[in-house]
């Protein structure tokens, strides 16, 4: 507790100390791993994605569906071998979307954002750095999870199973991991736009789960025109291998989903730059 320590500070503050984007990403990584809640949420996402995928596959193995059987609520959109193994995506997206919201809105709730923006007053690197970290962690964890879950699920299904080498299957499995990472990013951007945890989580859930239902109730002409372009349906287009006429092609679905992310993240960056912290 003396000021003497400050008289030899150049020994520990490097002369080239300054903000770079890579350093902001590193700082955001330190922030990410030093919060228990983020680590727990990532683990929970993995467990849910793998557990539900295997569980739905077991259900499918025991009860081969008759044509036209409706999918279980909260489960895969179709009970085919691929849909069942990716059946955890519907719930896992809520976890990772919530994690995205928490990582941003949590800084507003605690006041941490003022420290973050004081250290990086250009501001955009803070949000983009967070996105890089969450997307990176999500992909690093969820790509293997999705692949292993798929393989395990096909083991459960035995003769009913399909192969990773079949047409479009690898794309769909990797697509599921990409979709979940994207929902995390969406959560971050909505968190930055609304700065409020509860409001942002509600918005993400509404956008992914409620809006598609509401749109389907609209007159058919409107619903057919709008529905494929909603983020969840655009995601479904590159996570499935059935040629569903209600969905975009996988490539178009990916483009639309990425378009959503770019638009919402762009809006969040503009708002972050403009508004008082």
């Amino acid at each position: 507790m003396s000021t003497d320590t400050l008289r030899r500070p150049t020994a520990t503050v490097p002369a080239d100390a300054k903000v770079t984007f890579a350093r902001v990403v590193r700082a955001e990584w330190i922030k990410f791993r030093s919060l228990r809640s983020s680590v727990i949420m990532v683990i929970a996402t993995v467990v849910l994605l793998a557990g539900l995928g295997l569980a739905f596959s077991a259900v499918l193995a025991d009860n081969p569906p008759e044509a036209g059987t409706p999918a279980p609520p909260g489960g895969p959109s179709s009970l085919d071998p691929l849909g069942a193994s990716l059946g955890g995506v519907n719930l896992a997206q809520l976890l990772i979307g919530t994690l995205g919201v928490l990582l941003v809105a949590g800084e507003y709730a605690t006041g941490m954002i003022r420290s973050s923006l004081a250290a990086v007053p250009r501001r955009w690197p803070v949000l983009v750095g967070k996105i890089v970290v969450l997307a990176g962690v999500s992909l690093a964890v969820l790509v293997p999870t999705a692949l292993l879950t798929f393989l395990g699920a096909q083991g459960v299904l035995g003769d009913e199973g399909i192969s990773l080498g079949d047409d479009g299957v690898l794309r769909a499995v990797l697509g599921a991991a990409f979709y979940l990472a994207g929902v995390g990013v969406l959560g971050m951007a909505v968190g930055a736009l609304l700065r409020n945890t509860a409001g942002a989580i509600t918005t993400v859930v509404a956008l992914l789960l409620v809006v598609p239902g509401v749109v389907s109730l609209l007159p058919e002409r409107v619903s057919d025109a709008v529905s494929p372009y909603l983020p969840s349906n655009a995601g479904e287009a590159f996570m499935s291998i059935s040629s569903n006429p209600d969905l975009l092609s996988p490539g178009a679905g990916l483009a639309v989903f990425v378009g959503w992310l770019v638009a919402v993240v762009g809006a969040a960056v503009v708002r972050l730059k403009r508004r008082d912290a």
Partner: peptide, 25 residues
Amino acid sequence: LEAKAVHTGRTARDHLLAMAATHGI
């Protein structure tokens, strides 16, 4: 700053490490 500007879930050292990391400190 007047209002607390620290995430309550993070340790003091991790808070400082993250702040420092933005500048390569």
